[in-house]
C-alpha cells in the first residue's frame, strides 16, 4: 500500500482513474440496483435494436448494405448454433444463443470503444456491462435454465435419467457440473473483461500515450473471443442436454 501511495503522489495530472467495486446505486422499491451497469446496457441494447431494425427494415432478395451485414451476423450465429446443437433442433435456440453472443460482444466492445469515462456519474464510472458480476451471473443462470428447459422439454423427467449414463458412479459429478457450469461461465467472462479494463486503465495511468494501444487491441480481440466462448459453451450445453442417450 505504501508503494501505491507513493506512486499516487507521483501522478499529478488527473488523466485517468480506477474505480473498482464502486457502484452508482439506484433504489427501486427497497432494492438496490447498479445504475452504471443499466445505463451502459441500455446503450448496448439500443445499438443492437437499431442495428436489427436497420437490417430488417426493407428486406430484399438481393441483400445490400445493413441487411447484408446483419445477414452475415445471423449466418455466423446460425452456424455457431448448428455446430453445437445440431441440424435438427438448432433453429429454436438461435434467438437465445444469438442474443447471448451479440449482447456480450457489443457490451465488451463498448467497454473498449465507447469513451464512457467522459460521462461523469456520481460515485462510480461507466464501463462495459459485462464487467459487473451481476450481468455475467444473470447470463450464466439463464444459460443453465435454458439447457434444463431444453432437456426437460425434449425428454420430460427422463432427462434426469441421463445423469446415470454411462454409469451411476458419475452421477454426483454430473450434478456438480450443473453448478460449475454457470459458475465458470460467469466468472470467466467477468474476470476477463474486468482484467482487460483494469490492465488498460493501469497502463493509461502509468503511460497515458501510445503504450496502452497494443493492449487495447488485444483487449478487443479478447472481448470478441470471450463473447464467442460464452455463446459457444451455452450452445454446447444446450446441445448436450438435447442429445439422445443411446441405451
Amino acid at each position: 500500500m505504501e508503494i501505491l501511495n507513493n506512486f499516487n503522489s507521483l501522478v499529478v495530472f488527473p488523466l485517468a482513474s480506477l474505480e473498482v467495486g464502486k457502484h452508482f446505486y439506484w433504489e427501486l422499491g427497497g432494492l438496490k440496483l447498479h445504475g452504471q451497469v443499466f445505463l451502459a446496457s441500455w446503450l448496448v441494447i439500443a445499438i443492437l435494436v437499431i442495428a436489427a431494425f436497420l437490417g430488417s427494415r426493407n428486406i430484399q432478395r438481393i441483400p445490400s448494405g445493413m441487411q447484408n451485414f446483419m445477414e452475415y451476423v445471423l449466418d455466423f450465429i446460425r452456424n455457431l448454433a448448428k455446430d453445437q446443437i445440431g441440424e435438427k433442433e438448432y433453429r429454436d435456440w438461435v434467438p437465445f444463443v444469438g442474443t447471448l453472443f451479440l449482447f456480450i460482444f457489443v457490451s465488451n466492445w463498448s467497454g473498449a470503444l465507447v469513451p464512457w469515462k467522459l460521462i461523469e456519474i456520481p460515485n462510480s464510472e461507466l464501463a462495459a456491462p459485462t464487467n459487473d458480476i451481476n450481468t455475467t451471473v444473470a447470463l450464466a443462470l439463464l444459460t443453465s435454465i435454458a439447457y434444463f428447459y431444453a432437456g426437460i422439454r425434449k425428454k420430460g423427467l427422463g432427462y434426469f435419467a441421463g445423469y446415470l449414463e454411462p454409469t451411476p458412479i458419475l452421477a454426483p459429478f454430473k450434478v456438480l457440473e450443473d453448478f460449475t457450469k454457470p459458475l465458470s461461465l460467469s466468472f470467466r467472462l467477468f474476470g476477463n473483461i474486468l482484467a482487460d479494463e483494469l490492465v488498460v486503465a493501469v497502463l493509461v495511468l502509468l503511460v497515458p500515450l501510445f503504450v496502452p494501444l497494443p493492449l487495447m487491441v488485444l483487449g478487443l480481440f479478447l472481448s470478441a473471443i470471450q463473447a464467442l466462448i460464452f455463446a459457444t459453451l451455452a450452445a454446447a450445453y444446450i446441445g448436450e442436454a438435447l442429445e439422445e442417450h443411446h441405451e
Binding site: K32, L33, S41, T99, F103, N134, V137, A138
Partner: peptide
Amino acid sequence: DIDATLPLMALQFLILMAVLN
C-alpha cells in the same frame, strides 16, 4: 456485490431476446 441488478438484467436480456427475435 450481487443484488437486484441480477434478476433485472436477466429480465432485460429476455426482453432484448424477444425484441431481436
